[in-house]
Design a protein around this nucleic acid. Structure first.
Lengths: 133, 133
DNA sequence: TCACTAGTTTACGTTAACGTAAACGTCAAA
DNA sequence: TTTGACGTTTACGTTAACGTAAACTAGTGA
């Protein structure tokens, strides 16, 4: 439950360098605690790192990733805070949906093209079969 | 049908600078023809630019975008070429599917979190309603 | 003819996101 | 006790993807 990780634990698991993880800390994306001078990462730190890397894979800058991830750590004391949080979540969700539209278009585009290639390949093979008779 | 575009036509339409479009040409992503020294962009050039920008939005580097886009202009003469093309398309398609999994996870993650926020907000408002009686 | 608008090349500048190297601390095994 | 293995800070280096500025060309309306 209260498992912790060293910097190289996380570096290995997520296939990044320790430098990268320290850089994310300098940019305010992760805030590990310390044992003396050594960093100690909790499950929460690990989860945040995971979110950062996923954000990067989806084409977000570190600043954009931070904006999104920070929403998950936002205070939720009063109703007003909750409502503005929900508004912000909605805005970020719209960005993700935009990406999904792009992605779906890219995939179906590629699928249509591949299908045309397969048709053309069948035609070619038919011709070869005839020639072999 | 045979419509052409100037560099600033495309810059306006896709909300990038002419510099960006020239840079993509220098990187081999677009190859407009020329009228004297001025660039002339065809519908095909426009389509390639559109693909580049979509690739960027999805987190691909220009080099990765080029790899994908170039598949759409690959020669399809012989059956062997078509088969290797289909293999490459399949590999790129897998990359897109990876991104879709990431994206779907990000969205449903956010949805679950937002739902918890809404529940919490309802609870708060119930308490306020009781206190108002 | 002149000014304007839009295009061009060339080249140096900039920013995000790290890489890399140096110099140092610390702890366990040999 | 020394030698790795791992961690740290500091600081300069690097790359992709453009931005920016200068100096030039070519059509075009007043």
């Amino acid at each position: 439950m209260n498992q912790t990780y060293t910097i190289s634990d996380l570096a290995r698991e997520f296939d990044v360098t320790p430098r990268t993880i320290r850089y994310y800390e300098a940019e305010g994306l992760i805030s590990p605690s310390r044992d003396g001078q050594r960093r100690i990462y909790t499950a929460r730190d690990r989860a945040r790192l995971s979110l950062v890397l996923r954000g990067k894979r989806l084409g977000f800058s570190l600043a954009e990733a931070k904006e999104i991830i920070d929403l998950y750590s936002a205070p939720q004391g009063e109703a007003f805070q909750l409502r503005t949080l929900l508004d912000k979540l909605d805005a970020k969700r719209a960005l993700l949906e935009d990406k999904r539209r792009d992605l779906d278009a890219a995939i179906s585009n590629m699928d249509r093209y591949a299908e045309r290639c397969r048709e053309r390949l069948r035609d070619l093979e038919d011709v070869n079969a005839e020639a072999a008779e």
